[in-house]
């Protein structure tokens, strides 16, 4: 019974989000993650490439989509939210000047072991319409939070 309340969200797509990659974002991220290869730190943006884990930086913009579930009363207490899992598929390098578009889609939403699981797919393309990466995220809302 309670499952049907969630089913309608499966496949729901959010308006695309954009993220503009800058050299400064890449360099400061590489330093913060202690990933000190010259190609991640070069002061010349044209020689710079983002580390693969930089995916986390543009992905984080998609977290705003959780607001929708708060508005709709599906998530009642955000402090009960856990980051359960993260998958990255890498297709193309990311460089300064790239304008990324994130397409957030609800892949699955279900209750298991008294917790609410919310799974997002986020395919990411660049300004040329090429796929850069695909992120799959699992959020878990603990009992009392939904």
């Amino acid at each position: 019974m309670s499952e049907s309340k969630y089913e309608k969200y499966i496949g729901m797509k959010f308006p695309p989000l954009t993220f503009e990659v800058t050299g400064d974002r890449i360099r400061s991220y590489a330093r913060a993650t202690d990933d000190l290869k010259p190609e991640f730190l070069d002061e010349d943006d044209s020689k710079l490439v983002a580390p693969l884990s930089f995916t986390s930086v543009y992905w984080i913009t998609s977290v705003v989509s959780l607001g929708k579930f708060k508005e709709e009363g599906i998530i009642k207490d955000v402090s009960k939210l856990l980051h359960g899992g993260q998958r990255y598929e890498f297709f193309r390098p990311v460089r300064p000047g790239d304008k990324l578009r994130l397409h957030v889609e609800v892949k699955d939403i279900y209750v298991k072991n008294n917790m609410l699981f919310l799974v997002y797919d986020v395919p990411v393309e660049n300004q040329n319409g090429e796929m850069v990466s695909k992120v799959t995220t699992t959020f878990i809302i603990r009992p009392g939070g939904f």
């Binding site: 693969l52 884990s53 980051h83 899992g85």
Partner: peptide, 28 residues
């Protein structure tokens, strides 16, 4: 995701120029 970044570095640094990481799927 910081912890995951270290795991990505571990794999990328091991392969070096001999290959590419294509897919990584983790549970925290």
């Amino acid at each position: 995701l910081l912890d995951m970044a270290y795991l990505i570095q571990a794999i990328v640094n091991w392969i070096g120029e001999d290959g590419e990481l294509k897919d990584i799927d983790v549970q925290f």
